[in-house]
Design a protein around this nucleic acid. Structure first.
Length: 326
DNA sequence: ATCCGGACTA
DNA sequence: TAGTCTGGAT
């Protein structure tokens, strides 16, 4: 019912086409199983032009972060204080230099853009929705979806609550998991409307109650939406790289952490709070270009000398002859 | 063919 | 802990 401008972009997400043919049963669900394969893929450096538009004009007030940060730092007087890993500052500095010379797809946090040029309340809501959509989705895809929502005035709790879920689905396509996310958007909008006056929750706990908002996104929303740093935003890159660097471990052991949440808790024990926000874009970009999940490019990493995992994950490719393709 | 800048469920 | 939800990029 909204404008017709997106009707031309309709995709085949209409289930009505498949429900009438009984023969489909034999054909459907041909699903490719994820099989373990020899890591044979060469990782190309991701080179992409990143717009140098740094978001400086946040509608929110700036730092009350730092006061809080230093206050916390000095309160470590308890018995077991965790000491930072050796040379962590050099490592961060080195990664920063690599990042400044190499473009990565990440341009800080993708949903940061969502809130600019909007009034605070609408901006916050946009940040929340953008976070909701952005998981497992490329930033430019997410950005496109946000633009389409914005153009159709579907970026507030009120309008989303009233909108048809199918319409939302079409608008946010092709973000990953768009169907589930459209459903989550409706639920989130209703909750925000009924419990928070159309605004978004202002605490971590309340954000985590929202469907589709987990720890990673909840911290992101606190950081960007409220400018209130409650914890580190840990995604798979931060998780992986911190373990490779030996920066985190399970409490009381030297074992690697097994979940991003464990990583977050471990990292927060020693990383100074000024670094809690910048550590995410720093390591995400680093993880996309150098410290990749598969075959990290230790040869071009300037801090490999300080990394306990350097060159340990490079498989000997001798054992894998080139099979026939396809 | 394989990988995503997660969250949720069994 | 593993499977599932998703389509696009490489």
């Amino acid at each position: 019912m909204l404008t017709s401008k997106f009707s031309s972009a309709k995709r085949e997400i209409n289930p009505s086409t498949e429900s009438k043919n009984p023969e489909d049963d034999s054909v459907q669900k041909v699903r490719v199983f994820v099989r373990k394969k020899r890591a044979k893929k060469t990782v190309q450096p991701i080179v992409e032009v990143v717009k140098p538009e740094i978001v400086d004009q946040k509608p929110c007030s700036l730092p009350e972060i730092e006061d809080f940060a230093y206050g916390k730092q000095s309160s470590y007087s308890r018995s077991n204080e965790v000491q930072p890993p050796a040379n962590w500052e050099k490592v961060i500095e080195g990664i920063r230099k690599m990042r400044s010379s190499e473009d990565a797809p990440v341009d800080s946090m993708g949903c940061e853009k969502a809130g600019v040029s909007l009034p605070p309340k609408e901006g916050r809501f946009a940040v929340l929705i953008s976070s909701l959509l952005s998981s497992q989705t490329k930033d430019h895809v997410n950005h496109g979806a946000i633009q389409r929502l914005l153009q159709n005035d579907l970026l507030t709790a009120e309008t989303i609550d009233k909108a048809d879920e199918g319409v939302i689905k079409e608008l946010i396509y092709p973000v990953g998991f768009y169907s589930r996310k459209a459903s989550n958007m409706k639920k989130v909008a209703k909750i925000c409307l009924e419990k928070y006056g159309g605004d978004i929750p202002s605490t971590l706990e309340e954000l985590l109650q929202l469907p589709g908002i987990g720890p990673k996104m909840a911290h992101l929303v606190m950081n960007v939406g409220w400018n209130n740093v409650q914890g580190i935003c840990v995604d798979t890159h931060v998780h992986r790289i911190c373990n490779r660097l030996g920066w985190v471990s399970r409490l009381g052991t030297k074992q690697k952490t097994s979940t991003p949440e464990q990583t977050r808790e471990s990292l927060q024990l020693w990383l100074p709070k000024e670094e809690w926000v910048p550590i995410n874009p720093l390591l995400v970009g680093f993880g996309q270009t150098v410290c990749t999940p598969l075959r990290p490019r230790c040869g071009m990493c300037t801090v490999s000398g300080l990394c306990p995992s350097a060159f340990t994950e490079t498989p000997s490719l001798s054992a894998t002859p080139k099979k026939n393709k396809r």
